[in-house]
Write a protein that binds this DNA or RNA. Structure first.
Lengths: 185, 185, 185, 185
DNA sequence: GTTTAAGCGAGACGGTACGTCTGGTCTTGGG
DNA sequence: CCCAAGACCAGACGTACCGTCTCGCTTAAAC
């Protein structure tokens, strides 16, 4: 039977999540071991295995709880500016070591549900900006917002994941400019 | 000092590469072990470690040598048709188990140089089609072919490694249609 | 830090010792591997390495625990008879495969302290008989019992480890007869 | 078929024997590997395996060829003095590292024929002294010279092989004194 | 207030694979 | 055809982690 969450030690839980993130940053995803997390957290291995099935979900929780706040600037109302801001923010997020490594663990474990969850807020915000742009007539009305978001994020994700080229703000801007040409009347 | 490549046993080399691919297909990248490859190839483990540092480069070589031939159809000369063909081919390649698994091992081992190498031929072909289109005036002369290729491939690669949605031919076509709008006069 | 002996699994410990002796008997000391002992005992290799540094001490413990009982006959009180009995017993012990093989492993690993420990009981018994003989006046009072024991055991041990000649009971008797001439008035 | 001894390279042979003894002295018998001998001798491994079946015979040859000369003093004619000289010489020989290690390899490989060959000269000399003593009436005529030699050497070999106690000249003398009591009228 | 019964730190356990080392054989090119 | 060199197959070595298990010990709810 599953463990009783009510009696769970919050002290241990937090120690584990913090230790996981610290080690992830220090060692990278492939050298991170559950054993080391337990040792650094001063916790029995079983306490980790009791609450998480593997590294992936553990790091996911760790990131959710101790990851960066991500307080975004308010939209300016100018579509092209806001879209660029949003895509640059996405690129910067991916460049952060913790975020990057967590995502890579999740991709490696094929936990796409969790990766998606992690990437979703950014995507929702981007779609919101696209809808605004649509309302203002800067994007054609027949454009599928979801497809458009994929078009914008695709090149960014690719550069991140495959590291084919540096993931700069200028690149993000260029993508926005190019894609916008496809979306305008 | 490094081993003497001139005296290398080609018989063993081929047996190892074949065994690696077979086991990769049967077990997937996470269950594939060097030990099993050696056993199936009828080879000492040392013979693998002598020539490859880890699973990643081993599978890379295996795929290069015994991967699919990739005999592509001749270009039709109609840019939109050829671009769609090319992007569909890229998507189909990624969907193939062997290719997928090899790439994932390489990403996990942080050997993105090799992933890039693996993906490069497709990209080169795509850029060639774009240049043809440019010559025919279907793509503006000022468009950066490399950036355009990234725009086309980005969404496809994203769906592949994040598995956020099925990687169909229709999707590839849609990407081409959308991006072409950005690239035409 | 060293492992916690209190939490040691006695089941595993016994299984390992038994397996070690069985394999020693079946294979001889040079073909005996830790790996095989672990497999036969149904135990992880680490459980052996955790508690023993090498084959030598492992086999030593195994022999101490599961070696022959050594229930010796009561002394008859006749010195020459008891000395012969004792030396014959020593010779027979050395002829036993398990004992022989354990000693050879220990000598090879330069653990002569343990060999000595293994041979000590026999020697103590022999010295006891010599003291009795001394009390009865069959051995001169000024004889060093320890040196005398060495004189008796030396030829036996020599034949054992050099295998220069068969180690028979008659030989042991002859040694006793000869040495006694040196020890009597 | 066996290799053709006539075409054997004497240069290699000597280099191997010297290297073997040097490494034996440096590493001890259990850490000595054929591989290291070949490397140090600048010789292919096969050249060793072609001419010697294992470490034992190799070291035996090495010792015979490059071991100490052992030019012994002339006998004094006084039996007890000569016997003591002889047994002390035996003890000193065994104390020498090279001799010791070669013997141990041979004992470990159960090549008692070769050990015997190595120890035989000493034993022959000792028996010669015993026969002289017998001729001079210091040893009874009915004493079996061979058995007597065994009685003398046994304790010495034992202390050497098992290292139960230091193998001093005094000890050798004491053995002679004690045993002589058994051999005189 | 005691008594349970869980979670907990600790770490031993049976396993699996690692990457290294050595043994003994086979192959290649040079002399 | 011997030799140096060293690649080869084979398989044991000792280590690192895996995920499970068992120990006492808190510790908080249920009695």
């Amino acid at each position: 039977m599953p463990p009783d969450a009510a009696r769970r030690s919050d002290r241990s839980r937090r120690a584990i999540l913090v230790a996981a993130l610290e080690l992830l940053e220090a060692l990278g995803h492939s050298r991170l071991t559950i054993e080391a997390v337990a040792a650094r957290a001063g916790v029995g291995k079983q306490t980790i295995y009791r609450w998480w099935p593997s590294k992936g979900p553990l790091l996911f929780d760790a990131f959710l709880e101790y990851g960066p706040a991500g307080a975004d600037a308010l939209p300016s109302g100018v579509p092209v500016v806001d879209l660029k801001r949003e895509l640059r923010a996405a690129a910067e997020e991916l460049a952060e070591r913790r975020f990057d490594q967590v995502c890579r663990v999740l991709v490696h474990e094929e936990r796409t549900d969790l990766v998606t969850l992690l990437l979703m807020p950014r995507r929702m915000a981007l779609e919101e900006r696209l809808r605004t742009a649509q309302r203002l007539g800067e994007v054609r009305a027949d454009v599928d917002v979801s497809a458009a978001a994929e078009l914008l994020l695709g090149p960014v994700y690719q550069r991140w994941f495959l590291r084919t080229a540096p993931l700069t703000g200028e690149f993000a801007d260029a993508v926005v400019d190019l894609v916008l040409r496809a979306l305008t009347g």
